[in-house]
């Protein structure tokens, strides 16, 4: 069973925008297979979850993140 993150990562670190070029940040929100984690696991606000999803999809399209890992 997955334990959800306690607080919103972006609010905690004072990050205002989610950028597709910040691959290391985005990797936190992917599971080992490269799929986007649900909000129950990320602990993000609804807005930040949407922003992360959009950024991950942009990064995938640009070849900065893989569509499938393993």
């Amino acid at each position: 069973m997955h334990r959800p993150m306690t607080a919103d990562y972006f609010s905690q670190h004072g990050i205002k925008y989610v950028d597709y070029k910040d691959v290391d940040v985005l990797k936190r929100f992917l599971n080992p297979h490269g799929r986007i984690k649900p909000r129950t696991q990320t602990g993000l606000t609804a807005k930040h979850q949407r922003d992360v999803t959009r950024a991950i999809k942009r990064a995938r399209e640009m070849g900065l993140l893989a569509y499938i890992m393993k």
């Binding site: 670190h13 004072g14 925008y17 950028d19 940040v25 942009r58 640009m62």
Partner: peptide
């Protein structure tokens, strides 16, 4: 090879992590 063009904001959007506090 590939490109992306999208609307964004004028402000700096890259994450500047506060490593000192952490």
């Amino acid at each position: 090879l590939r490109y992306t063009l999208f609307k964004t904001t004028r402000e700096e959007t890259r994450a500047q992590l506060q490593t000192e506090q952490s």
